[in-house]
């Protein structure tokens, strides 16, 4: 009998496989985490501030207090994720020591390194990273990301950037599928991604890891649209707990994600949800405040 192997790619990517078809919800207290689990969240993201508040309050956004993360882990039975700043490998070491189930190396926090991302192969805990296009996704996978989330524009309640990013990744994958082998060398150069990963995507027609969509999802129809566009699941950040009726909205988004292709279910769950988060149109955001542009 061989020695059990922890932290293998299969085990790291495998947890993301088990989250598919589900909704991962941002929570800032154990009470919100309880609401999320009761509503059918497949995992929670433990944060001190949701992106909408980070956006409103400004300043440097960092990893959450370990006490908060531990209190949320103690509250729920589903996986708990937490965010580290881009490039902040010590925050990631701390989160691994806290036994979180996934680390999100996230542009929602203030980057700690404007050149390098975290070398994610050095960790037992898996990482999810944001991407706006295929090249960025493959660079993150090359660094060890075990799951990708298309970025969208977090904290806005405006789904248009999420739509743009999932469509962009999809069209770039589809373009690779129709290329000949010699064309893939140039494609790898243009995508600024390793040839081996580009070849793998061309052959399989999909990313080597699970792809969720994030950023601006605020309604059941938003979540279902992301699923129809090919996402494996959705992250909902500010959209739930910045709305009028979080319990009901959270449960509705879960149902719409499972029955994403059944408009009658989406209609039913969309009734009487109360106010959605107010939202900010991405077009009104000056460029320095666009989080999706963080990460390279």
């Amino acid at each position: 009998m061989t020695v059990p192997e922890t932290g293998s790619s299969r085990v790291k990517r495998g947890l993301a496989e088990m989250l598919k078809g589900g909704v991962i919800m941002d929570v800032v207290t154990p009470e919100q985490a309880r609401i999320a689990e009761d509503a059918g969240a497949v995992a929670v993201m433990a944060l001190e501030r949701v992106p909408a508040d980070i956006r409103a309050q400004g300043g440097v956004a960092r990893m959450s207090d370990p006490d908060l993360i531990e209190a949320i882990i103690a509250e729920v039975s589903i996986p708990v994720m937490a965010k580290a700043r881009i490039g902040h490998f010590v925050e990631a070491q701390v989160l691994q020591a806290l036994d979180v189930d996934y680390i999100d190396e996230s542009e929602v926090l203030s980057p700690a390194d404007y050149v390098n991302h975290i070398d994610k192969w050095q960790f037992t805990v898996p990482f999810v990273c944001g991407a706006t296009n295929l090249g960025e996704a493959l660079r993150r996978i090359n660094e060890g990301a075990a799951m990708i989330r298309s970025k969208g524009e977090a904290g806005t309640g405006d789904v248009s950037e999420a739509t743009k990013h999932i469509r962009k990744i999809t069209s770039e994958v589809n373009a690779l599928k129709s290329m000949t082998r010699d064309e893939l060398y140039v494609a790898a150069k243009e995508l600024q991604a390793p040839y081996e990963l580009v070849l793998e995507v061309a052959e399989t027609g999909k990313l080597p890891v699970v792809l969720f969509t994030a950023g601006g999802v605020a309604t059941p129809a938003d979540a279902a649209m992301m699923m129809q566009l090919g996402a494996d699941g959705v992250f909902v950040g500010s959209g739930i707990f910045k709305s009028g009726n979080p319990e009901q909205r959270a449960a509705a988004i879960v149902k719409a994600t499972t029955f994403y292709d059944d408009a009658s279910v989406i209609a039913d769950v969309s009734r009487g949800l109360g106010e959605a988060m107010v939202g900010i149109s991405v077009g009104d955001l000056p460029a320095p405040h666009r989080l999706a542009e963080r990460g390279w």
Binding site: M1, T2, V3, P4, E5, T6, G7, S8, R10, V11, K12, G14, L15, I73, S77, P79, Q96, D99, V100, D101, Y102, T124, V125, P126
Partner: peptide, 13 residues
């Protein structure tokens, strides 16, 4: 979830 957090997830023969 008998083995603990994701850090304790594993593969074996």
């Amino acid at each position: 979830n008998a083995f603990g957090s994701q850090n304790q997830s594993f593969e074996t023969e």
